[in-house]
Design a protein around this nucleic acid. Structure first.
Lengths: 186, 186
DNA sequence: CTCACATGCGACAAGGATGTCTCAATAGGA
DNA sequence: TCCTATTGAGACATCCTTGTCGCATGTGAG
């Protein structure tokens, strides 16, 4: 028997491989018929939205895990820096599974998801701002920019691995060190 | 009268605004009828491929402008660094117009465009490698990674501007400085 | 064994986009 | 002015995808 969660996971995998995959392709990937797929999910858009929600859940979980709010109030530069690294490395791992959601037009165009994205970005931005004030992150860049920069490097990291330019196991280090210290010689 | 070039430019604009724009929408944006649009372009895919080609032309032009090959052979660290900056700032400008091509599935899935992308990425990688050997770029990162990192920051930069988190005029500086020196405090 | 329930399969209608065609209007040059 | 080439508008067939439905199958619990 195929669990609803199995279906969503399979759909995730299928859409990760081909972001334009049709419901037929998704159903095949899940090893069920299209009719059964529709017994689990109302529509293609609903599926995408649900997967988008899943990815936001995961994002939120990462933020909870490092306890963003407490951290932001802590003034502990070392812990903040460590948390930032942990966060980014976590995102890199997540991008393996949720990467397609980063650039999917249906997900990006959904108002509810966009609103929740804003909320999470706000939470994150609080941490960034705290990191700025304790001297971990540069103060000459807007706090809101950091999240975007991370996002971009996740997209490029995915791409680099897909094209074989970078080994998957090196990705975390590459993204993190490019992000924090840049690609130029110090 | 509407020039073929006008049509492509308008299509660019329309697809930039909405990457999923239909041929009807593109035609409207160009101020012509759908039939006339098809007199200029065989199919939607052909249109996308042509616009993708255009963006690669522009990329190639940027590489020509800085004379990548000569530069890579020059061993002049200052000039290489300056060229890198010029290149990236140029890309940021181009992303205004060609940004949608960065993530469009039709364009990305096209074999011919992907092949040419590889060629251009190779040219660029030569410059990156030279930059590494003269001490401008870090040697502990793969030369092929740099191009991806730039790509990612272009995507995020576009996004940041679209969401209003970053002013368009600040974008070049943000991207360039995040890329080169990272977001962490030195 | 039997029954209920989930599934696969096939068929179906609907919707949307694409590409083609024809015909009338129009603009621009001879 | 007249002729020609281009355009717009609309109609059309086609294709693909989506979502729904009915029916037969099979499996698992009791």
């Amino acid at each position: 028997m195929v669990d609803r969660d199995d279906v969503l996971t399979a759909a995730q995998r299928a859409l990760n491989a081909d972001p334009a995959a049709s419901m037929t392709a998704v159903a095949e990937a899940a090893g069920i018929s299209r009719a059964t797929l529709h017994r689990h999910v109302d529509s293609r858009e609903a599926l995408l939205v649900e997967l988008g929600t899943r990815s936001l859940d995961q994002w939120e979980q990462r933020l909870d895990d490092v306890d963003v709010e407490a951290l932001a109030a802590s003034d502990d530069a070392d812990r903040i820096r460590a948390a930032l690294e942990e966060l980014v490395l976590g995102y890199v791992d997540d991008s393996d599974v949720f990467g397609f959601a980063l650039t999917d037009q249906v997900i990006l165009a959904n108002a509810a998801l966009e609103a929740r994205t804003q909320v999470l970005a706000d939470r994150e931005a609080v941490l960034f701002a705290a990191a700025q004030s304790v001297g971990v992150l540069r103060t000459d860049l807007p706090a809101r920019w950091f999240g975007h920069a991370i996002y971009g490097l996740l997209v490029s990291g995915r791409d680099a691995v897909r094209l074989g330019d970078v080994a998957r196991r090196d990705l975390g280090r590459l993204v993190l060190s490019s992000l924090l210290t840049g690609i130029a010689t110090p």
